[in-house]
Simulated assay, not measured.
Amino acid sequence: MELSQLFLLLWAGLVFWVLGQIWLVQIVVYPLFAQVGEAEYVGYHRFYSRRIPLPVIIPGFSSFILPVALALFGPAVPFWMSAANIATGVVGLLVTVLLEIPRHARLEKGGKNNATIAELVRFNWPRTLSISAQSVIALLMLIHVFGVA
């Protein structure tokens, strides 16, 4: 197996990991924010924020940035696959930095705010869909490179 193929396999594993996470966040974790009481909310959010870097933030940001490296150092795939993979990573990155992080900061400082929680859930949909698209692209890349068994 070539190094470029190994890179693709590692990429696919990462993006499928992030796919599971983003759907759990979209369907369970963010909606659960609204179920926490006001008095406990800041402590709850701080607890959440301290524990997500390793399992969520690092893989998530990696899935936004690594498509560029995969296009440069991964196996040969059709141009549209690499371009779409990079574009979906950019969408995820922009949603995270411009929409989600500021709302998390508001919740952590200001406490429970149902309007902000609703925005967090609503604005997470483009990121959820972009990561879902990345997963489909990763699967198509795997089929292209390794063929169908």
Rank of each mutant, 00 (worst) to 15 (best):
P75D: 01
V148S: 14
Q134K: 12
P53F: 11
V68Y: 04
I58S: 01
F64V: 05
A133E: 09
L140W: 04
R50M: 14
T128R: 04
F79C: 08
H104A: 00
A83P: 04
L140G: 10
P78M: 15
V145M: 07
F146S: 01
I117T: 02
L140A: 15
A76N: 09
L70Y: 03
K109A: 12
K109I: 13
I137W: 01
P126R: 03
A69E: 07
P53I: 11
M141A: 13
V148N: 04
A87W: 01
G74F: 05
I86H: 12
T116H: 05
R122K: 15
F79W: 15
R103A: 09
A83Y: 00
F79E: 13
L98N: 08
G89T: 04
N113Q: 10
L94T: 09
R122D: 11
R122L: 00
V97K: 09
E108L: 13
L72E: 07
R127D: 13
A76Y: 04
I58H: 07
V136N: 11
N113A: 13
L72S: 00
G110F: 08
P59C: 03
V56D: 06
V95N: 09
V77A: 03
H104R: 05
A118I: 05
V136R: 08
V56M: 14
L98A: 14
V95W: 04
P102M: 02
E119A: 13
I52V: 15
A133Y: 07
K109F: 07
V145N: 05
R51C: 10
I101R: 10
A69H: 00
G60P: 03
L140C: 15
L66V: 05
N114T: 12
G147A: 11
G60K: 07
P67K: 03
N124H: 13
L70D: 01
A133M: 11
M141N: 04
A71D: 06
A105S: 09
A138W: 08
T96Y: 14
A76V: 08
T116W: 06
M81I: 14
